[in-house]
């Protein structure tokens, strides 16, 4: 059933291999050597993350919810721990990423419902959710340590070399779902983000769109976790968006610039990590932060150069 649904995406993956091999033929780059197909998959996953993380992040950042990515990543870590624990104790074969999705979604909805009840998103409750998630995850893992040799490092920091074809295909599907959902609801998400009261007055069910946004965030966070790791996953939601805010004039432009910055960070970061022999996730984030600094400087320069003649308001037509 799932295999049937994912079958077209496996063909997309094959197509991607073919593109990468051709690219290797053209450039001769060592990183694209056909014997490293795991890197092909890692690059594809990175590119998917580079689309969906800044896409969702743009709405989060402008709602002042930048922290929520961090909070959800840490609860997703608890979800991973739950998966590993259940597998070890009950001898199941459940994927830790699946339990991570479930736990992160529950946490996302909990944060949202708390904020609806108390009428405010507050960083205190998010900090509590964050620490609870991480503490729970760490506890379960320490309980497990005797019977389990799985390194938790790959969940904390991400790992480019362990991505299986199935992981890549699932992330591809996730990316399609997230992008399609945002495309369909872009009007409502924009209105709710910009002016929640006016959106509510205009008849938009604001709470449902808020819930949708946090659930999408949970999906993106877990999807990106394999490459970036729990600790750094929130960076891709926030850093490219912060850079784009410095440069963009319109909202559409800001989403496009954020995606471009994120993709640059992914490609340059993976390359730098490969040639430098470093871990991929942290290098991607460092490159993203570097791009943010460049964007901020360019933004200030742009302001200084263009800020001159303000147009005059016209007479009001009665």
């Amino acid at each position: 059933m799932i295999d049937l649904a994912l079958a077209p995406l496996y063909r997309v993956l094959d197509l991607w291999y073919w593109v990468m091999i051709r690219l290797h033929g053209l450039t001769g780059l060592e990183i694209l050597d056909p014997s490293f197909t795991f890197l092909y998959r890692a690059i594809l996953m990175g590119l998917c993350i580079g689309v969906m993380a800044p896409l969702i992040g743009t709405y989060l950042v402008h709602r002042r919810l930048a922290l929520i990515g961090d909070a959800l990543a840490h609860t997703a870590f608890a979800g991973v721990a739950v998966g590993l624990f259940v597998n070890a104790v009950l001898d199941f074969g459940i994927s830790p990423y699946l339990t991570a999705v479930v736990v992160a979604m529950i946490a996302a909805l909990a944060i949202e419902l708390i904020s609806e009840a108390t009428d405010v998103y507050n960083d205190v409750s998010m900090a509590i959710v964050l620490s609870t998630g991480f503490a729970l995850g760490s506890t379960l893992i320490s309980l497990n340590a005797g019977g389990l040799s799985v390194g938790i490092d790959q969940y904390l920091f991400g790992n480019l070399s362990t991505v299986a074809p199935f992981d890549a295909v699932v992330l591809l599907a996730l990316c399609l779902v997230v992008v399609a959902t945002v495309v369909v609801t872009r009007n409502q998400l924009l209105y709710v983000t910009f002016d929640e009261t006016a959106a509510a007055v205009s008849g938009i069910p604001v709470n449902w769109y808020n819930r949708l946004l946090v659930v999408l965030t949970a999906l993106v966070v877990v999807g990106a976790m394999q490459i970036l790791g729990v600790i750094l996953v929130a960076a891709m939601l926030v850093v490219p968006v912060a850079g784009a805010t410095q440069l963009a004039r319109s909202f559409t432009e800001s989403i496009l610039i954020a995606v471009v910055l994120a993709e640059l960070a992914v490609v340059l970061g993976i390359a730098a990590a490969y040639y430098g022999g470093a871990t991929g996730g942290p290098v991607i984030v460092l490159v993203a932060v570097g791009l943010y600094v460049v964007a901020a400087v360019l933004g200030k320069l742009g302001d200084a150069l263009t800020d001159s003649s303000a147009p005059e308001t016209d007479a009001i037509e009665g």
């Binding site: 910009f194 002016d195 205009s202 805010t245 909202f251 800001s254």
Partner: peptide
Amino acid sequence: HVPQRTDAAVGMPITVREVVKMGRFP
């Protein structure tokens, strides 16, 4: 609805046209 000054996210990158466009969303 015309909000109080602090109610809308006026810090975000959004043009006047994009704001006015929201009036058509309903």
